[in-house]
Design a protein around this nucleic acid. Structure first.
Length: 556
RNA sequence: GGCCCCAUCGACAAGUGGCUUAAGUCACAGCCCUCUCAAGGCUGGAUUCACGGGUUCGAAUCCCGUUGGGGUCACCA
């Protein structure tokens, strides 16, 4: 008689290693009490998703704050969906955000004692475990065809039974090792299924670090663990990899809750201790058509791709801080207290996680980013702006490269103070706001008519500008004295210096002094808006101011 | 549809049976400050915690049901 043991040998004659060998090769990690071993384990199917960044950040922080280990594992068991090169991209993007693995797959090489960290290179490891499972009668080859599966499903639906491969529907369960061998020799394609001993009528209580105890129905599905292409499915790879790699905290999206029972049964069957699980809320968005919430979708939502934020020039720290806001409800209060601290000094906790998925809130990201950008010193700001510009903005690159000190002076306006100026959400906002400082750009702006107040005559404008240049004395003026001199100048041209007086009788004046300063602003900045005029004047310098005024007058 | 998860202002949320006539942040509106803008300051918005029952002297907080939303039911992860 042909036995299970012989079938296992027949199926995997090339596998000589045993479970014990693997345990020896991948010894338990020696870490201090409470240290978490976490991982980020994406599939190389595209660029980094915002939800993945979130998951990776959480895993990374939990490992770091507990003096544990964070590693990167590439889950490339689905060769059909794989997009070449994206594994490296993922690593790079994460690195961009400061999330660097202690061990694992690095895109071009691997590091660590638990290698390989790429699942397609671990085929033999999975086979050792499967071989063992077959010997024990807890796994078996299944020859059911796609058609048979569809037929079975139709039957189940008609009878309103739970769909799937289980119990009496699990036909191939009853195949003798002999028959299985025969089918294989006939060349029938097959997969290997796990033989479940569960009953869906039973409930199991499983602890989740974030959600507490959850009542799940026991798994009774004979899930596929080994695909016809020789690679494992996610469920099985999770079991084997996280066991041998010593993961003790699995952080993943809440969509995995529904297969948790499978994983629990798998670990129990092997007699291995299951890791702790923390199922994270998923980032949501409001669907424009239905008005309902749904998961961020790469196809429909630009903000689903991390590259979107990078392209827009959001400061990385802003994105990270926003994500932390979603993760822990007490993070915002902490941020308010420590506006300049790094997120690494905040301690993430399971208790402060929200249980339902947050709506992605762009205005909030803008606000946090604005705060981050405002709190940077000029050097850091310029460094990061330059790094961004080199990739995404020729214009900004040129602004910085022409004269870095000059650029720093511009973006430093109202920066070194208790409540810094906050007018950029992201680096792509910078050019529009500072363009007028550069003579050539300013000249180009003059091709459109200047937005002077239409109630003030060109003659008055001309007189004010001439007087302004004539009386300008930057070397001996400070902001206050300049401002006072502008009031006096206004008076000379019939601009009232008292708002109340002016309001009572506006027709007797050309305007009040704000209107007078506005003439200067528009002439020099080609815009009705600018930072404090005196700062602008200082940076422009007398010569350039003169040039601009002459040019504007000639155009009037 | 079965199973599972979730449910406090437009959004993120505090709240773990009496301290809540329900914090704070973002957004929004108004006012103030102001050379414009960006900031900053102040004020406003849930007569009530999806709804209905219970438990209790007392519930946003505990229990049950209903409703709503989400997830999942692959040789995808």
């Amino acid at each position: 008689m042909f036995t299970k043991e012989e079938l296992a040998e027949f199926l995997f004659p090339e596998i000589h290693e045993t479970l014990e060998d693997l345990e020896k090769r991948y010894p338990r990690r020696q870490l201090k009490e409470g240290a978490y071993v976490t991982r980020f384990a994406p599939s190389p199917t595209g660029f980094l998703h915002t939800g993945s960044l979130f998951t990776a950040l959480i895993a990374y922080r939990f490992a770091k704050q507990s003096d544990g280990v964070y590693f990167f594992r590439l889950e490339d068991t689905d060769q059909k969906r794989e997009i070449a090169g994206t594994g490296l991209d993922l690593v790079k993007q994460l690195k961009n955000f400061g999330i660097v693995s202690d061990e694992g797959y690095f895109g071009d090489h691997e590091e660590g004692n638990y290698a390989p960290y790429v699942q397609s290179k671990r085929a033999d490891i999975y086979k050792v475990v499967i071989k063992e499972l077959i010997k024990r009668g807890r796994a078996y080859p299944c020859f059911c065809t796609k058609e048979e599966m569809e037929e079975m499903r139709a039957k189940q639906e008609a009878k309103k039974e739970i769909p799937g491969y289980y119990g009496e529907y699990a036909k191939c369960r009853n195949l003798t090792p002999e028959q299985a061998k025969q089918y294989i020799e006939e060349g029938k394609p097959y997969v290997i299924r796990f033989r479940s001993e569960g009953n869906h009528l039973n409930h199991i209580r499983v602890h989740d670090e974030i959600r507490g105890d959850m009542d799940l129905t026991e798994n009774d599905q004979d899930i596929v663990i080994y695909k016809s292409d020789g690679l494992p499915t996610y469920h099985f790879a999770h079991l084997v990899d996280d066991h041998f790699m010593g993961t003790n905290l699995v952080t993943r999206g809440e969509e995995w809750i529904s297969s948790l029972a499978i994983h629990i049964e798998l670990f129990k069957t092997m007699g291995w201790q299951a890791p702790k699980y923390a199922h994270l809320p998923v980032i949501m968005v409001t669907d424009k058509e239905s008005g309902n919430r749904r998961k961020l979708s790469k196809r429909k939502d630009p903000e689903a791709a991390v590259s979107f934020f990078l392209e827009q020039g959001y400061p990385k720290d802003g994105v990270l801080k926003y994500l932390m806001t979603i993760a822990n409800s007490n993070f915002e209060a902490w941020l308010l207290e420590n506006p300049k601290s790094d997120i690494s000094s905040f301690k993430l906790s399971f208790e402060k996680f929200s249980l339902d998925g947050a709506l992605f809130d762009m205005p909030k990201l803008d606000n946090i980013s604005k705060e981050v950008l405002g709190n940077m010193d000029k050097k850091t700001f310029t460094d990061q702006a330059y790094e961004w510009a080199k990739e995404y903005s020729e214009e900004l690159t040129s602004f910085i490269e022409r004269d870095r000190a000059h650029f720093e002076e511009i973006i430093n306006i109202e920066r070194d103070q208790e409540k810094p100026r906050k007018d950029y959400n992201k680096f792509s906002d910078v050019c529009d706001k500072i363009r007028f400082f550069f003579p050539d750009k300013y000249d180009a702006l003059l091709s459109s008519p200047l937005p002077f107040n239409e109630f003030i005559s060109h003659d008055v404008i001309k007189e004010v500008l001439q007087d302004f240049v004539a009386s300008l004395d930057l070397e001996h003026q400070d902001e206050t004295s300049w401002f006072e001199s502008m009031k006096v100048l206004g008076l000379r041209h019939n601009f009232c210096d008292d708002r109340k007086v002016y309001k009572k009788d506006p027709t007797s004046y050309n305007g009040w002094y704000a209107d007078c300063i506005s003439i200067v602003r528009i002439a020099l900045c080609a815009s009705t808006q600018s930072p404090k005029m005196f700062d602008v004047l200082r940076i422009l310098g007398k010569e350039e101011i003169q040039r601009r005024v002459e040019k504007v007058i000639s155009l009037l």
